[in-house]
Amino acid sequence: MDGVSDAVDGAAGADGGGGGGTDDAEGPLPEDTVPDPREVTRKPTTLSAGLAMLSAVVVMALGGMHSVLAFGIGAMGLAALAPAVVLGSRTAADVGGGILLLAVVATGAVAGEVVVLAAAVATVLAWDLATNAIEMGEQLGQEADTDRAELVHAGATLVVGTLTAATAFVVYNLATGGQPVTALVLLLLAALALASALRL
């Protein structure tokens, strides 16, 4: 080829092609070249990624208001979630979600019900949105217009969490008016029974 390989390109770079599944094999983006507009950047979408980080900050802040330990663990969770939503690693997202969960436990050791409920919802939100950003990035790429799907998803998760938390809080307050310990145990049993009935 007489060294022309610099100028050689095979088939015209193909975009789309109807793949779209998560199984699209994509090589890593060469770092030293200008991004090719035809190439799909399969990195987490920015909107969900940003919202996930925001939720993680909320978890950290709620913990920080009550204990230094919870704040520290929350910061670790935030630090684990950041590479997940920048690079697109599911494992990092799961690890980040797990650490945030520990931060909720640390918060719950000292804080009241409202704070713990809010922190639990924020933890689920952070983990769910990070996963959604990664999946959306893998399927559609960063260039695609995905804002609306992301917002609807984030909104649904937030509303469900808030409703559950509010209902739980109201029921708890009504129940603890009389017999706090029994109410708690019953609530726990109900939760576990529901979880096993749902086989999840």
């Binding site: 969960l101 436990v105 719950g108 050791a109 713990v116 469900v160 809080f169 726990l188 979880a195």
Partner: peptide, 28 residues
């Protein structure tokens, strides 16, 4: 999430954590 929050609530005897596990069950 449901299991861990529930277990932590029982072990630490914190009603707030038990309540937190309800959120997870709600999502399920």
């Amino acid at each position: 999430l449901a299991m861990i929050l529930g277990a932590a609530g029982v072990i630490l005897s914190r009603p707030s954590l038990l309540l937190g596990s309800v959120v997870a069950v709600g999502y399920l």
